[in-house]
Simulated assay, not measured.
Amino acid sequence: MHRYAALLRGIAPSNPNMTNDKLRGVFTGLGFETVGSVLASGNIVFRSAEDDVPALERRIQRALNDELGIAGGTIIREHAELRALLDSDPFPGLTHGRGTYLTATFLKDGAGPPERLPEQPDPLTRVVGYDGAARVFLAVIDNSEPGTTPDFMSWLERSYGADITTRTWLTVQRIVKKLES
């Protein structure tokens, strides 16, 4: 049995069709086991014997769209991938906060790695790297100026389209903890 995290894009907890109980209901209806949610921003953990991740992503996204009208993307990572990412300690000595907003931007399974990382794209972002095993960009963003979108996030959208989703490092840690409970 595989332990997975589904990272859903475009979830607005204030939307009555996007509450954790409705999201979990879709996953339970698909026959997944040990379905749980992490925070209210579209992070669902579950177990399944299925091992074709792209097929799982398509199946879940189709069900979310059909049952709840959620057209955003679904990105899945296996527990082992996320655990290895945490164990690699990509943000040594840093603490998540306004001036050091630690982020992980996940690519859809099957998306190719970048030919090269962008140069430090703007003064608000420090690109830490790209983890090929977890298919994730890691960056430290200065979030002390609300309402500004760093150029790095725009570069990610231009390069990979809507097949990405970003989580804070704290959220990634919470997801792994939930997968291990």
Rank of each mutant, 00 (worst) to 15 (best):
P113F: 07
L124I: 08
L124E: 06
V53S: 11
L30P: 02
V172D: 00
R126M: 04
M153C: 05
Q120R: 15
T148V: 15
W155Q: 06
D51L: 07
R77F: 14
D21T: 15
V38W: 04
A133P: 12
Q120C: 12
D131L: 04
A139T: 10
A139Q: 09
T171W: 02
P13N: 13
G69L: 08
F106Q: 07
E115M: 13
V26M: 11
R158F: 15
F91G: 01
R98D: 04
D87N: 11
L138P: 00
W169P: 01
R158G: 00
G112M: 14
P90G: 07
V45K: 07
F27G: 00
E115H: 15
G147S: 02
A80P: 07
D122G: 15
V38H: 09
L124C: 06
D89Y: 05
S14K: 12
V140I: 15
D87F: 01
S154K: 13
T28Y: 02
R47K: 15
A139W: 01
R116K: 15
A104P: 03
P123E: 15
H79S: 06
A104V: 03
A80M: 01
I76G: 07
S88V: 04
G73H: 12
L23T: 04
P123L: 13
S14W: 11
V140T: 15
T100Q: 06
I175Q: 07
V127C: 08
E157N: 09
K178H: 07
N20C: 08
A55Q: 13
F46L: 07
G69N: 09
A5C: 11
V140D: 05
V128K: 06
G73E: 13
D142A: 14
T100K: 11
Q61W: 09
T168Y: 00
A12E: 10
D66R: 03
L156P: 07
A162Q: 10
R58M: 10
G132T: 08
D109N: 13
S154G: 12
I75V: 05
S14Q: 09
D21N: 14
P118A: 04
T28N: 10
A133D: 10
E119L: 14
G73D: 04
L85K: 04
